[in-house]
Design a protein around this nucleic acid. Structure first.
Length: 561
DNA sequence: GCCGTTTTCGGCCCGACTGTTTTCAGTCG
């Protein structure tokens, strides 16, 4: 079993850190860029290596391709082993302390012989830092706090967390800040806006007539554990639970430029700025400049427009060719929130009542969802497990009224091919939702009912590949969204490119505040999916359903004028 | 170490904030 993409990326990042400690200027960033690129690949590196295509990965040139190849073949890398031998592991640890970068870690190591976090703590206690150039009382206190935190567990801010966990936090921050008098615009930028699966921190941007009031409200958020820094335009806090949140208040003329800049990705921005340079322009977080003159900045549309580009949806800003597409008008029209018109996969609780059935129907009508597929039972190995009481099924049918379709579905665990329990066929189910656990790759008899959906699965490319083959053969869609039992955006992209339609869950049977629809829709957009590529979206030509009335971060649609 | 519709060499984003500074270095994003 070879190394995963994540493992290879981790080793490249380690090389970058070690080269940083050696004072290298540009190599570390080159290794990090290659690592970022590899982390976001939609398929395994081994496939690239087989095709001899490692160097087609952005940021991977001759030298890194050779090192990746060595890692894939042997599981280790002589170059990395040499670096590890030269630099004590504890020095890397030091560099990861907040407020300690490569320069400081290197000084600890070479000037003071401090080779780890606990050695640093001892040195501080022994007063060895006093009188050393660059270390005054405040800095030493900061370091003492940092080493204390480090010894009682990993630094809380370092971990990225799933976007669906961060979503409710983001929503409550927006709710509070939008209520502050004088606030005009508030948006969350960063990887959250790009709908990345995992989010490291939140970047909040605002415009306001009285910035101080916004900062005060921000500092006073109930979840704030610590205010890390506060300046005239920027404040950083850490919430209980460790999530770091940055707030910047900018002037309205620069809001679009700031939103663009802080949404990233880094690689997207680097390419955008180099495009600007070719045109004799300069882009920064304040605007697009020709010489001293600002020619754009208030909206993102203006910023991209000033560079001759169409507005690029945040979910596509990963430097995967989107800038060239925006220049030539070839950007896809991504699926939008109002496009979802059907829900194929609803589970009601086992003890659901007629009232639950009525509530589901009412919610579908409120959200203008015209088809709701309810799972009536599970078929597994020739057995049949009903999921809902007969009265509930009757209540569903009775309360639906005109204009709502309520087909029943059966879930099949494992391969549905040749599976014909009599109960399944008499259950009223119209279609199957197949759960690959896994599916056999051989072709056999056709399933007893149409398979519309593959659901409750996710995982690495080698698990997803065979499932996608079966989905395509059956004409089934695959369910995407947050969690380990749905496909993430990289897998969704693979599916889309293989011609397999995507299914976006609407969270119809969940709490109205559940972010599953927004998150899954973000993944679909990240995968580059148009409405036609989402199986449960409305037909082309039909009007969009009215936007559901949910509180929270607006979807990142094109800027309105 | 990577990269190129002005380049196979010479660039590589850049501004805010902090702490220790008398004009700046380091870190961070």
């Amino acid at each position: 079993m070879g190394l995963s993409n994540e493992e290879v990326a981790a080793r490249l990042n380690e090389i970058a850190d070690l080269l940083d400690l050696l004072g290298e200027r540009f190599k570390p960033e080159a290794y990090r860029r290659a690592a970022r690129s590899i982390e976001s690949l939609p398929e395994g590196l081994a496939r690239f290596a087989e095709r001899g295509a490692l160097r087609t990965i952005p940021g991977v040139g001759e030298a890194i391709a050779g090192k990746v190849d060595e890692l894939l073949r042997t599981g280790s890398l002589a170059y990395l082993e040499k670096l590890r031998a030269d630099i004590p592991a504890g020095v890397l640890e030091l560099m990861r302390l907040p407020g300690v970068g490569p320069k400081t870690a290197r000084r600890f190591w070479t000037e003071l012989g401090i080779e780890g976090t606990s050695a640093l703590a001892e040195a501080i206690d022994a007063g060895r830092l006093e009188g050393v150039k660059g270390f005054a009382a405040k800095k030493i206190a900061q370091l003492r706090a940092a080493t204390g935190r480090a010894t009682s567990g990993p630094a809380p801010t370092s971990a990225r967390r799933p976007i669906e966990q961060v979503w409710p936090i983001a929503r409550s921050i927006l709710d509070v800040l939008r209520g502050v008098p004088g606030v005009r615009q508030v948006e969350i930028a960063g990887s959250f806006r790009r709908a990345r699966e995992d989010v490291g921190d939140l970047d909040v941007l605002a415009t306001a007539t009285a910035p101080a009031a916004v900062f005060d409200a921000f500092s006073a958020l109930a979840a704030v554990q610590e205010v890390r820094l506060r300046g005239p335009t920027k404040e950083t806090v850490v919430l209980t639970g460790g999530l770091q949140v940055d707030l910047r208040v900018v002037e309205p003329e620069a809001f679009g430029a700031a939103l663009q800049y802080f949404t990233g990705s880094k690689d997207h921005n680097v390419r955008l700025r180099s495009l600007a340079r070719e045109q004799g322009l300069k882009v920064n977080e304040y605007g697009v400049y020709r010489g001293e003159q600002r020619i754009a900045g208030a909206t993102e549309e203006d910023v991209y427009g000033a560079l001759g580009l169409a507005w690029i949806p945040p979910e596509l800003r990963e430097d995967r060719g989107e800038i060239a597409e925006a220049a030539s008008g070839r950007l896809p029209r991504l699926v939008e929130p109002g496009d979802l018109a059907e829900e194929w996969h609803v589970h009601l609780p086992r003890d659901a009542t007629e009232r639950d059935a009525a509530r589901l129907v009412a919610e579908a009508k409120r959200r203008a969802i015209g088809t709701v597929g309810v799972v009536v039972g599970v078929a597994e190995g020739g057995g049949w497990q009903p999921q809902l009481a007969a009265e509930v099924l009757t209540a569903l049918q009775r309360s639906r009224g005109p204009g709502l379709r309520l087909p029943f579905a059966a879930e099949t665990r494992g391969d549905p091919t040749g599976l014909v329990p009599a109960d399944l066929l008499s259950s009223g189910a119209e279609y199957l939702i197949a759960v690959p656990e896994p599916l056999s790759s051989r072709d056999a008899a056709p399933p007893p009912l149409p398979v519309r959906l593959l659901a409750h699965f996710g995982g690495p490319p080698e698990v997803i590949g065979p499932a996608l083959d079966r989905a395509r053969a059956w004409g089934a869609a695959v369910e995407i969204g947050p969690g380990s039992d749905r496909l993430d955006s990289a897998a969704a992209r693979t599916a889309r490119l293989a011609g397999v339609p995507l299914a976006v869950p609407t969270g119809l049977a969940r709490s109205p505040d559940d972010p599953i629809e927004a998150v899954a829709l973000g993944f679909a957009r990240r995968a580059g999916a148009s409405r036609a590529e989402v199986a449960n979206a409305r037909d082309p030509g039909r009007p969009p359903r009215p936007a559901p009335k949910v509180r929270g971060p607006p979807r990142s649609g094109p800027p309105r004028r």
